[in-house]
Nucleic acid binder design. Sequence first.
DNA 1: AAAACGGGGCG
DNA 2: CGCCCAGTTTT
Length: 376
Amino acid sequence: MYSEEKKQYFSTELLGWYRRHRRDLPWRRSNNPYYIWISEVMLQQTRVETVIPYFERFIERFPTMESLANAPEEEVLKLWEGLGYYSRARNLQGAIREVQERYGGTVPDTKEEISSLKGVGPYTSGAILSIAYNKPEPAVDGNVMRVLSRYFLIEEDIMKNSTRSSMEKLAVELIPEGAAGEFNQGLMELGAMVCTPRAPHCLTCPVRQHCSAREAGLEEALPVKKKAKPPRPEYRIAALIEGSGSNSGKILIRQRPQEGLLARMWELPHVEVPYMYPAAPSLPREVPEGVNSLVDALAGETIGFSPERWFMQAEHTFSHIHWEMQVVLGTLERPVVPGSRDAHLPSHYRWVDAASMAQFAFPNVFLKIINRYFSK
DNA sequence: AAAACGGGGCG
DNA sequence: CGCCCAGTTTT
């Protein structure tokens, strides 16, 4: 397919460049498969700079696979709070538990075994095998596909599985003897630092002399990637319910369902509405029209919500959904009498203050709202 | 093959 | 504000 000379040049130059320019990252200080694994999962769809503090906190709290396996899931989620894609955290812990039980506490070193673990796909398995065990397996992520598509002028849509598959085949052929881990990291490092999505730094690129996209002036046009569909809008109204009596200074939160979006995380009680009600910018702030559906929904959970005033508007974009949310401040209709506290509260509800928030993992959108409330 | 699944940084 | 990111699982 491609000439041996073109491939040989690429491998040699890239490996040399990586050895000179590699960043000193926390997970590059050992080849501990467990640490490599954590870093690779955190790095899925997430930038290095974002991951660093999370990684440090995570291995400090869970230095061994045993410590992670034995931890309560809520604590793992709390340490993951803000990183997103929370199924990564749940899958990681589940997979570590399986390693404890099925593999005697040793991360397996074969493609088949490691790929069978939850949350470990083609990229992560290759990354762990090459970086931790120096096995000549491909680790093809977005960076690698960008680099290869440019250097070899590959114009296939990188969103297609067939494209990733053919790039894995190519990537294996490029791995220098005995240097799989360094080479794969070098490939990703080049994509992150030099062969960037926009305005690539071709002048400092170690392989620019034989880069086909550069020769053709197509480096900015590659890789070819089909556009994703825009996120669909969703409109929601949330309740910021202030406690009274023994719950004075606290607000009411609830846990999300076991499955689906943001599974088992905590949130403000809220409801989806068919369209966005006006924020009522007049003074004083009026309660958004249609807040009745929120009151009705909460009544269905035995929560008597008495709305008082508009609090704020919040927006949040997921990869596939755009939330527009109005937050309404209010109280419980029937103040809870001391002694029978929480008697009518469903089990997935809790009263929290600023301090006890730390025990619950929230998606960022709710964290922002609640933090603003408590800092007022 | 397409959709679900978070969040942040950058030009 | 659009684009992109060290992807995997489910449908």
